[in-house]
């Protein structure tokens, strides 16, 4: 009984962390069709921003939820203005450019912080569930994931900003003929996407040892989640995260974490074979 509760919490936690690490990419790749290979490095910078902020005495939640997104969002906008904006609509070129950016960012982080592991401790202590103790921070991550999904849904569905953004992504010419500046809208969207990536890094920072190339461990998972999710951003993110998170954790419990990862990748391959355009292209069609 207690073990079932623990397993359910772990599954929810894995789903939540997939949502968190993929949300920034879902915006940048899912909405803007920019293959952002530097997504992992955006997370890495968010992680470092959080660690530095915490070490200089700022409250850890402020660091994670405000400072990390803000720092990475600003860096994202600078990169967008200098490089990405010249490449909209050129899918392969964005991939090459962002790959280069990712290498540069890893190099810069290595120069600034050195090639060593950095870290801070988790702010929430362990929770007792029957005979078991679990990481209390898991609940924080689950809460944030719920918050991200509901906030995203609300923004896109019910606000004028969301409507304009979706319109501009669909057809920038029409949006511009209606008096909106697609350039400005793209910049704002890229800012929001980068900020989400930065927050993801900040949230994970207390759980891991941070190194300059830490982000590369997450990039594949984030892309798989977004690609398998398909064209609908929120529904796609939610459905693919739920599927992969459950598969990964159930296999991890039955066997080892290695087989959990294998099961996740096998599921992804089968799904892409059956639904090459993603879950939300066939099921949940037309949802947001």
């Amino acid at each position: 009984m207690d073990l079932t509760a623990v397993i359910i919490v772990e599954i929810l936690y894995t789903i939540a962390s997939l949502i968190i690490i993929s949300s920034g990419l879902a915006v940048i790749f899912g909405m803007m069709k920019v293959i952002n290979f530097a997504h992992g490095e955006f997370m890495m910078i968010g992680g470092y921003a959080t660690i530095i902020a915490v070490k200089s005495g700022i409250n850890i939640y402020v660091s994670i939820l405000i400072i990390a997104p803000l720092v990475v969002g600003i860096i994202g906008v600078i990169i967008e203005r200098l490089i990405i904006r010249h490449l909209y609509g050129r899918l392969v070129d964005t991939m090459l450019a962002t790959w280069g950016i990712s290498i540069v960012l890893i190099g810069l982080a290595t120069m600034i912080f050195g090639n060593t592991t950095e870290g801070i401790t988790t702010p929430i202590s362990g929770w007792q569930i029957g005979d078991y103790r679990i990481n209390g921070y898991n609940f924080f991550i689950i809460m944030i994931a719920i918050l991200i999904v509901s906030l995203g849904y609300y923004l896109l569905k019910f606000t004028k900003l969301g409507l304009i953004a979706r319109g501009a992504m669909q057809d920038p010419n029409v949006a511009s003929s209606l008096g909106y500046n697609p350039d400005r809208i793209y910049m704002t969207t890229f800012f929001i996407g980068s900020a989400f990536s930065g927050m993801a890094g900040g949230i994970l920072a207390p759980l891991v040892g941070l190194t300059p190339n830490w982000g590369t461990a997450y990039i594949a998972k984030a892309f798989i989640t977004v690609v398998v999710g398909g064209p609908s951003i929120i529904t796609g993110l939610l459905s693919s995260s739920t599927l992969f998170g459950s598969v990964n954790q159930i296999f991890s419990f039955i066997t080892t974490p290695v087989w959990g990862e294998v099961a996740l990748l096998v599921t992804a391959i089968i799904l892409l074979r059956l639904l090459p355009k993603g879950i939300t292209n066939s099921i949940f069609r037309g949802k947001l």
């Binding site: 592991t117 870290g119 401790t121 988790t122 362990g126 990481n135 759980l207 891991v208 040892g209």
Partner: peptide, 15 residues
């Protein structure tokens, strides 16, 4: 570096 997370998560769960 990645495995350092274990010590952190172990302590975070109170184990």
């Amino acid at each position: 570096g990645a495995h350092i997370s274990f010590y952190r998560q172990w302590a975070a769960s109170g184990m």
